[in-house]
Design a protein around this nucleic acid. Structure first.
Lengths: 234, 234
DNA sequence: CACCCATCTCTTGCATGCAAGGAACGTTAG
DNA sequence: CTAACGTTCCTTGCATGCAAGAGATGGGTG
């Protein structure tokens, strides 16, 4: 959160552990609910338990792992309710970002959003869902960045990490017709932003988030199934 | 963030350190920018450096301290820009909370808000700013709690901690006429919530936050002064 | 056969020791 | 007197050892 991932030089080894573990969790490389042994990770990275332990502490604050004292550390498994809450926050923050960006007027991010949509149009046209998924991520990131509020950006990233969003996007885009619809909604939002109509931009953006959430939920396996065997998910 | 403060029993000593340090920073007991020595704190709490160190790690993720590698750990000093950003987020989240609460309809928090305002009216009437400040904090907390979104609540708390809000409220209430005005705005917001007019509730709540921010900034010492000697405040 | 209890192992929590890197200070040269 | 340099002290980063607690596993009993 504070330092961004980069080269391996000048990066403390615990920063590397944090970046690596975060990537694994977000990408789904490690399953939700899976136990993370300090010792095993330490051996794997060739370091002692200490930096691994401190990495866990930070990942816990970010909401990615859960440390149960004297028991173990586990990858967080968001309950259904939490997922709903996370999307509510996503809608809120992205809507606000759209409005803020509209208020800022002509800034570089606008151009980058334009280029993003040009590429996206092409990707949709040739049904390249993989690439389109990346562009969707970039679109939302650009929107947030364009709001020019570092706190909003930081909290947004935390939320997306908890959702393991990159993994989810593809699911929603597998819904028939969703990519085209999504692309259209992006165009509309950008247009309203360019017109400096902040209110409408926020409104449409929020509706877009809700739509994407619906498409996503529809593509999920089964309501009660998944790694949510844990009864703590109230 | 994950565990709430409570009795000293069954609480790991690092949790105690975290709670204590957080309280000190928020209350202003330690000045922004002040160095926090691991060793000194460890001695004071009668523990080793390890739990203090882990506490720092978490407080850093919460944005309350800054760990400069090989140099030291310091209480964060939000730049002027960051304060603006934090208030922007405050406005956003509290506005959303008001709307969400309005949508929820009749819930216990509504009654608690009513009782809060009754007490607040009395406090304002007898010019008890101290007590009113507490009630203001409770009002906003109840609003957030009433939104029934744990993520929103968690992020809100983090933001308020970064603002060292409890300390700021009193400043803003020292503006002449501000308590009465503030109390009125609270009443209006609650009324709109009861009427289930979410849109208006959000709008009025956001305006209220902006007003309180203005009152607060007006009461601050001097724009460029204070512990903000750090030129990083772009 | 089912259930309860003791033990045993694996987990993390904390204490401590050592090393590397900054920053500040005193010193010395110009 | 000023400025540059070398040294010293203080800071955190990491490794390791020990102890306490939770969970699993086995044996014993009703």
């Amino acid at each position: 959160m504070t330092e961004e991932a980069g080269g391996s030089t000048t990066m403390s080894i615990q920063a590397k552990v944090i970046a690596e573990m975060r990537a694994r969790i977000i990408s789904g490389e490690v399953d939700p609910g899976a136990p993370l042994s300090e010792l095993a990770l330490a051996d794997e990275f060739g370091v002692s338990r200490t930096p691994v332990r401190e990495a866990f502490k930070q990942l816990q604050t970010e909401g990615l792992v859960e440390i149960r004292p004297r028991v173990g550390t586990f990858v967080t498994t968001p309950s259904r309710r939490e997922i709903t809450e996370l999307f509510e926050m996503k809608e809120l923050l992205e809507g606000a970002a759209a409005r803020l960006l509209a208020q800022r007027g002509r800034v570089p991010e606008i151009d980058r959003l334009r280029r993003n949509l040009e590429e996206a149009d092409a990707a949709v046209a040739r049904d390249d869902r993989e690439h389109y998924a990346e562009l969707v991520g970039e679109f939302h990131d650009l929107l947030i960045t364009g709001a020019d509020n570092s706190k909003l950006e930081a909290h947004y990233k935390t939320l997306m990490n908890q959702l393991a969003y990159p993994r989810l996007v593809k699911t929603s885009l597998d819904q028939p017709g969703r990519p085209l619809q999504s692309d259209r909604e992006h165009h509309l939002v950008l247009e309203l932003i360019v017109q400096k109509d902040g209110d409408s931009a926020e409104q449409v953006m929020r509706e877009h988030v809700r739509a994407s959430r619906r498409a996503l939920m529809a593509g999920l396996p089964v309501p009660g199934r998944g790694p949510l065997t844990d009864p703590t998910g109230a």
